[in-house]
């Protein structure tokens, strides 16, 4: 098999306060895959995601992105390759205009001038919000902000997009529109969520993280059909939803 985009081996992490969040996580994601990382609240999903671009440093184990180990020397390149979209767009969109926000990442990579403008336009087009470039982030609807948040990361041309709860707080229409956008993107996706129908809709493969370890890894439908596994790890499909 080809070199995985994401290669996580034996990742363990304890917060400085002593709380152990991850106990040896193994995960491989290959180019072109869309993988859902499922788990109940407090399973360590977000902690795991913060290791993928070196925000947190593993206590034990390693993270490698397309062959590049996530260490101090390679952080800038790792952060270009791994684009994390945070759950609250107000955390992600910190500049005063949409355009400046989308330009922030590539500009940190040294892109300037016409090339920068082209990157911004391309990223905004990919999520269908070209017309919002001059607006202030807090004047946008929640759905628009989520899309712009994705554009801020796409502008860095990442190899893998890591989305933290992408469907949270979205109305059904925005939710569907976002799913269409994610399907249209030509990028590897790791989607951290507890929205199981969204995982079924978008990801062919699912990994279940519970109490800091991977407890299941397989085709999404097969994983979700294992009622006993699901119940044990506090995962539930919404009432009336069947696969």
């Amino acid at each position: 098999m080809s070199l995985p985009v994401l290669d996580v081996r034996g990742l363990a992490y304890a917060y400085p306060g002593g709380h152990q969040a991850l106990f040896g996580v193994d995960l491989h994601v290959h180019a072109g895959e869309r993988v859902a990382l499922l788990g109940p609240n407090g399973a360590g999903k977000t902690t795991f995601a913060l290791h993928l671009n070196g925000i947190l440093t593993p206590g034990r184990g390693s993270v490698t992105v397309s062959g590049l180990p996530v260490t101090g020397d390679s952080l800038l390149e790792v952060r270009r390759r791994v684009g994390i979209v945070f759950q609250d767009p107000d955390d992600q969109l910190f500049m005063t205009t949409v355009r400046d926000d989308v330009a922030f990442g590539p500009a940190n990579l040294g892109v300037r001038g016409a090339e920068l403008d082209a990157r911004v336009a391309e990223a905004l087009r990919a999520v269908g919000v070209e017309d919002l470039a001059g607006r202030a982030p807090h004047h946008l609807s929640f759905g628009q902000r989520r899309r712009v948040a994705i554009a801020t990361v796409l502008a860095m041309r990442p190899e893998i997009l890591v989305l933290d709860e992408p469907s949270s707080n979205l109305d059904p229409t925005s939710r569907r529109e976002l799913a269409d956008i994610l399907r249209s993107l030509d990028v590897t996706v790791l989607m951290v969520t507890h929205d199981l129908p969204y995982a079924v809709e978008l990801c062919e493969r699912s990994v279940v993280l519970s109490e800091g370890t991977v407890v299941a890894d397989g085709p999404t439908r097969a994983v979700l059909a294992d009622a006993e596994l699901m119940a044990r790890h506090r995962l539930e499909l919404p009432v009336g939803f069947s696969i």
Binding site: I55, F86, Q92, N108, T152, V153, M156
Partner: peptide, 8 residues
Amino acid sequence: LAMLSRGF
């Protein structure tokens, strides 16, 4: 964190 993630 979001800023660091984009190379700040």
